[in-house]
Amino acid sequence: MNDFSSRPGIPLRALAPNAITALALCTGLSGAWFAMQGRWENAVAAMVIAGVLDVMDGRVARMLKGESRFGAELDSLSDVIAFGATPALVMYMWVLQDMPRFGWTISVFFVLCAALRLARFNARIDTENQPHKLAGFNTGVPSPPGAALALLPMMIWFETGAEWVRDYRFLGPWLLLCAVLMVSNVATYSWSSIKVRRSLRFMALATVGLFTATLVAAPWVAMIGATIVYAALLPFSAISYARVKKARRVQTEAA
């Protein structure tokens, strides 16, 4: 009887998460293609879908036990393209190309910061002494939320038609701020660092339901709200990490 488990090759469970990552890369990069045609809503939607796929690939990899170093490297490359290069190109074609002298410089700086953030992540992937990670926090703003923050003015324009968000004097500094947040050492919430009290679990479920209903009825309102809430939580995440760090120091000293 043949032993199929000894056959050479890569198991399908290892390819599934990598396929999702590749799909996220292609979908995110398609945002630039839409932008070239002036289809701005499609451009942002492509990056939103890429963000959903980016969340899925890690979950699928852990579920199927298909994690690999190759997958981690591919995921980082996908993030640089989908959430670094594409948002920068879209914002450049939308407004920054009209900015005298520094429009392209700001766009390139955003891509550079996204790449530096992911290079830092890969360099530390085998390092045990990572205070933020051990406490369940991220270091700096991850590239998908960073892209969402960068695209926030465009989403506001979709919903309200406000022209002030299309002013390069506003958009240039805003994109610089988003880039700096990605490479900063600010502790930001991750999924594992967010804890919901038992007394608030029904409220949390109701909030998720409300967000889903809004996403169906008014998608840009939902996306704007979620992005603004994330930005508003950044100071609280830093405070929360400071509390965790202090509690751990007290425990260490007591021990």
Rank of each mutant, 00 (worst) to 15 (best):
F4I: 15
F4H: 14
S5N: 10
S5M: 13
R7L: 15
R7M: 15
G9F: 12
P11N: 03
P11Q: 04
R13W: 15
P17F: 10
P17S: 03
L23C: 09
G28K: 04
L29K: 02
G31P: 04
F34A: 02
A35C: 06
A35I: 12
G38I: 10
R39K: 13
N42V: 04
N42Y: 14
A46E: 02
A50Q: 02
G51T: 14
G51V: 10
L53Y: 07
V55R: 03
G58E: 02
R59L: 14
V60Q: 01
V60G: 02
R62I: 10
G66V: 04
S68W: 12
G71A: 09
E73K: 08
D75S: 00
D75R: 01
D75T: 00
D75I: 03
S76A: 09
S76F: 13
S78Y: 11
V80M: 11
V80A: 07
I81M: 15
A85Q: 04
T86R: 00
M91F: 10
Y92C: 05
M93H: 08
V95F: 08
R101A: 13
V108T: 10
C113N: 05
A115G: 08
L116K: 03
L118A: 03
A119E: 03
R124K: 12
D126V: 11
T127W: 04
E128F: 15
E128K: 12
L134M: 14
A135Y: 03
A135S: 02
G136M: 05
G136F: 05
F137M: 01
N138Q: 11
T139G: 01
G140T: 10
G140A: 07
P145Q: 08
A147Q: 09
A147I: 14
L149K: 01
L149H: 08
A150Y: 14
A150W: 13
L152H: 06
P153I: 09
M154P: 05
F158W: 08
F158H: 01
E159G: 09
W164V: 08
D167V: 09
D167G: 06
D167I: 08
R169D: 07
G172M: 07
G172W: 15
W174R: 02
L175H: 04
L176R: 00
L177P: 03
L177T: 11
C178W: 12
C178T: 08
C178V: 10
V180R: 00
V183F: 08
S190C: 01
W191Y: 14
S193R: 01
R197A: 15
R197Y: 14
R198I: 15
L200T: 14
R201L: 14
F202T: 11
F202L: 13
L205P: 04
A206M: 09
A206R: 07
L210H: 05
F211D: 00
A213E: 05
T214R: 00
L215T: 11
V216P: 04
P219M: 06
P219Q: 04
W220K: 01
V221K: 05
A222D: 04
A232C: 15
L233T: 15
P235C: 03
P235S: 05
A238N: 06
R243H: 11
K246V: 09
R249M: 13
Q251W: 14
A254P: 07
A254F: 14
A254T: 13
A255R: 15
